[in-house]
Write a protein that binds this DNA or RNA. Structure first.
Lengths: 124, 124
DNA sequence: ATTAGTACTATACTTTTGTATACTAAGAAT
DNA sequence: ATTCTTAGTATACAAAAGTATAGTACTAAT
């Protein structure tokens, strides 16, 4: 387990955290913006096709869906498979890395739920 | 442990995930943008004062720092303490929730590092 | 020839986010 | 009176992200 608190150690600040910082910003970039997580969630739900995703994600425009899928593909989160049938069939699938995001998502959910109970508690 | 894959279960999709989704978007909002994590990292490093944060975070303008600190305060990540000395002293401190973000950050670092090795591997 | 299905792209626009530069408020020290 | 310090705010602007609406390319069936 990496420990972000290592960054508190002045010695290590100089030598080590470069690749931690890079890893962290990678992860942020992958999840950033309004649509990335809804798309990843839909893919986890087993949606694979453009139209299905569009129907499944409230109010996303085809432009945004297209753009975000491209970014996710470039970042190695999504794989795009083309089947030369007619009409053409295209599948979007999560890569292993993409599926591994569930662990990050889970820890975000855990924090979010704890945070909600904490901040509600502190209001009383 | 919450398991995001529960969302794959059609039954649960209807009943349960509302507060998961809320928790998740809370967490995203807390970390979103260019400056939130650098600020949180600086606070973890023990920086507490406006000027220290500004010096510690490369190229942040006072306007952005001010704006982001306000958001972090509203979201219960940071506490602002005013000491009526002269010149006035103001301290920004992470709340318990704020400190707890290290667990999310750690899982993001873990994923990011794994993802880097995976995608490098897959290029050969 | 027209309609329909799939998977998008183009254009123009609005909103949000971030930048640059200058300025303010309050009291203490000189 | 003016200068110093801390902690910001004001104004104007630029860039990035997102929206709205319409249109394209391909093929197959009617």
């Amino acid at each position: 387990m990496s420990d972000f608190k290592e960054l508190l150690d002045r010695e290590k600040v100089q030598q080590c955290p470069r690749h931690y910082v890079l890893a962290l910003t990678d992860t942020l970039n992958v999840m950033n913006g309004k649509w990335k997580l809804p798309i990843i969630a839909s893919l986890l739900h087993g949606k694979t096709r453009f139209k299905d995703l569009q129907d499944n994600i409230d109010k996303i425009t085809p432009r945004m869906l297209s753009k975000e899928l491209k970014e996710l593909e470039i970042n190695g989160i999504v794989e795009r498979k083309v089947y030369n049938q007619t009409p053409v069939l295209i599948e979007y699938l999560l890569t292993e890395s993409g599926k591994n995001l569930t662990s990050v998502i889970d820890s975000m959910i855990d924090w979010g739920m704890l945070h909600r109970t904490e901040t509600i508690k502190s209001r009383w």
